Simulated scan of single mutants.
Amino acid sequence: MKKRVLFVCLGNICRSPSAEAVFNGLVKQNGLSDLIECDSAGTAAYHEGEPADQRMQSHAIRRGYRLNSIARKFDPAVDFEKFDYIVGMDDDNVNDLQDMASGIEDLNKIFKMTDFCSHGGHYSVPDPYYGGSEGFELVLDILEDACEGLLNEVRG
């Protein structure tokens, strides 16, 4: 049975679509596309229907990632049922997801992205939206580390 992973940030235009692209790259590289699929969503609908932030796309492309997803809002009625891992980018995202959970089964699917980091030092994936280039690069650095750990977790 396929494992399904959902990455969640606030607006679904920077961090979560980047996590989706980085994770998809690892899944493909490891020949696991038939076993693992992923998606991304936002806790808010600010950018629903929009592509990823152009600045985030530019930084990701330089590392070989394509951010193809279109922003959507997290749907608790569907997403808790569909996904095995629901991964928030920061404490606010995790808290919002926990507030939407309808029970222990939903709560047990919620994780924080940086819990999967092996290099330490980061307690969240910071939102780069209002910052400069270094913020977008930091997001990708953290995600590359965390996605490796997450893939190991999902693989079992």
Rank of each mutant, 00 (worst) to 15 (best):
V5D: 08
I104H: 02
I142R: 01
A41P: 10
A19F: 11
A60S: 06
H59F: 10
E105P: 02
V125C: 03
G42E: 09
A41H: 08
N152M: 13
V8K: 14
I110K: 10
K109N: 10
I13R: 07
D115C: 07
A60E: 02
I61Q: 04
Q29H: 14
Q29E: 15
I36E: 13
R4Q: 12
L140W: 00
S33N: 13
Y65K: 02
L140V: 00
K2R: 14
D53T: 04
Y85A: 09
G88D: 04
V5L: 10
D53A: 10
G132S: 06
M1N: 06
F111Q: 08
D53N: 15
A101N: 08
G103Y: 02
I70H: 00
R66Y: 06
D75G: 07
R62T: 02
L67P: 00
F83T: 03
A41W: 06
Q57C: 09
L143R: 11
H122S: 12
I104N: 10
S33Q: 15
H119E: 14
Y85S: 05
N108I: 02
T43F: 04
M89W: 00
R63M: 12
P76D: 05
L143E: 12
R55K: 14
F136Q: 00
N108R: 15
I36C: 10
R66N: 10
G88V: 04
G149W: 07
E137C: 05
L138P: 04
G31A: 11
V94P: 01
I110M: 11
L6D: 07
R63P: 02
R15P: 06
V139S: 10
G25D: 15
L143H: 06
D96E: 11
L67F: 01
M89Y: 01
T114R: 01
F136E: 00
S69C: 02
E48G: 13
T43A: 02
F80M: 05
C38T: 15
E144P: 11
Q54K: 13
L97C: 07
K109W: 09
N68K: 14
I86M: 10
F83A: 02
Y85E: 04
E48S: 15
G121I: 02
M56Q: 03
M100S: 12
S133K: 14
K2A: 11
P126T: 00
D96L: 01
G149Y: 08
G103L: 02
V125M: 07
S33A: 15
G88I: 06
F23D: 05
S69R: 09
V139G: 07
R72P: 03
R55T: 11
S133Y: 07
L151D: 11
R72S: 01
C38I: 03
Q29M: 12
A44E: 07
F136G: 00
D106F: 11
D92R: 11
E137R: 06
A101D: 08
Q29W: 09
E20C: 01
V78T: 14
S16W: 07
G103R: 07
D115A: 14
G156Y: 03
S124R: 09
V139Y: 08
C117R: 15
D115F: 08
R4L: 05
E144M: 13
G132F: 05
A101Y: 11
K28F: 09
